[in-house]
Design a protein around this nucleic acid. Structure first.
Lengths: 251, 251
DNA sequence: GCTAATTTGATCGATTTTGATTGACTTTGA
DNA sequence: TCAAAGTCAATCAAAATCGATCAAATTAGC
């Protein structure tokens, strides 16, 4: 197995386990102890994991980006402004698909008090609407992924395939000319289904997400109808989106 | 097992139990007394636990699991006994369907620490397993019914129909000769599907549920394989169940 | 096809962790 | 109170892991 493939697989393993054993990695990756060790050194320098005696630990025990901390992050103010703007694009009584991104969680709070039908695969977002009596919430089923507090897997995708929504609001890990990408391999499956299920696709992403590709390619730029970002977004990226006929809104 | 993995497992165990025994840890972690002792010293210095003679205590009293209402109810002690007994009927690595009843939630806590695949339509129960790394949780999708914190409706039923489980543990509102009944009309739909999906049906109900019919008829007595109740259950009701070939266990 | 650069797997001494042992200490129960 | 059983801390040899090095294998560039 090639180095890049190994790195990907290690990241993937660390998404479902907090600790991976050296021996297990050697077997799983069909690579020598030395190679695995080098991989771990590389990934540690990238901040993906922390090396410990006999293996490696996942860097964040729970994915902070997608957990409840989203309110206190560094980009909190930007996110709130983006979220508020994105929320205005939703009309009352629409059916809204929300994915599990942290910016999307901010959109969810901005939607509180509206009259809507919300569908999501994120337990954290369902939690946001817990006391919102005006909002009907439907959860997709699926495997509960503890670190992301999201529902994933074939059952989830199958469920999303069987429904239709007026609008999808989706967070994203990276945006380049090649398209949208996400940092977590597992979430792209449901997200692709969500894109298919929604009449209108709104992507929310602060300017730091532009020009960089996250691990997993999600979809080409064409799938988005609207992108909501902040005013610091460089002109070149603005132009890129407009070339693809995407409506761009800056908070 | 490597040190890092052991530390994780110890933390995990302390989330579901206030106290862990030295011997139990040695067996669970497949490590020597010395190693376990060293682990405990490390974790104590990290403030995770407090070492006591013969084992270790959890540092902060686990809150999440305890402040759910079902533990403070009037029948709390009975429920815990019934739950503990019902939990013994589940074998490791089985797929277990859990409905959303309060007694079932008690069973869920009794299952913590086991190695299982759990499927449920209750958000409260999914919450119980939030930090149980040995337990895979799958949520059925569906409409989020805020008052019950459960997933219901056609999407939910459709999802349950598409799966199979080794055993179903179901709470019940009323038991009479006519069969099982439940107090909430909405939950019986998913429950009927669960009965179909499971190879073995275990009903948990304290003795107060016998001899009274709740609002909605759910199913005949024949669907149950085992009923777990408490010792105060009158003979006549015990006889009724046995007539239907149901195994009766009294906690 | 050939060469240079990179990646891989094996080896070895240094370091860390582990499990067994010993004697001192604590708890238990009569 | 005392003795027996259980637990603890300290020590040490054995085992496992690590980091560094180097030759072989693979890949990339020309």
């Amino acid at each position: 197995m090639k180095a890049a493939a190994r790195h990907l697989r290690i990241r993937e393993l660390l998404e479902s386990q907090e600790f991976v054993d050296q021996d297990v990695l050697c077997a799983e990756l069909r690579a020598s102890e030395s190679s695995v060790r080098r991989d771990l050194i590389t990934l540690e320098s990238e901040g993906v994991l922390k090396r410990v005696y006999g293996g490696a630990m996942a860097m964040q025990p729970r994915d902070t980006a997608l957990d409840f901390d989203w309110q206190s992050g560094r980009m909190a103010a930007e996110k709130r402004r983006i979220a508020a703007l994105a929320a205005t694009l939703v009309e009352d009584n629409q059916t809204v698909l929300l994915d599990g991104g942290s910016t999307v969680a901010a959109v969810a709070t901005a939607l509180l008090g509206r009259s809507l039908h919300v569908m999501t695969n994120s337990l954290a977002i369902a939690e946001v609407f817990r006391d919102a009596r005006q909002i009907d919430v439907t959860l997709t089923g699926g495997y509960v992924y503890p670190r992301l507090r999201a529902l994933l897997g074939p059952l989830c995708e199958q469920m999303i395939s069987s429904i239709t929504a007026d609008v999808l609001i989706m967070g994203i890990g990276g945006i380049t000319a090649e398209g949208f990408s996400n940092s977590n391999t597992l979430v792209v499956g449901p997200e692709r289904k969500m894109i298919e299920a929604a009449h209108k696709v709104i992507v929310v992403a602060d300017h730091t997400k532009f020009g960089r590709a996250a691990v997993t390619h999600l979809a080409s730029l064409d799938v988005a109808d609207v992108v909501v970002s902040d005013a610091e977004l460089p002109q070149e990226h603005q132009a890129l989106l407009r070339q693809h006929g995407i409506q761009l809104l800056l908070a």
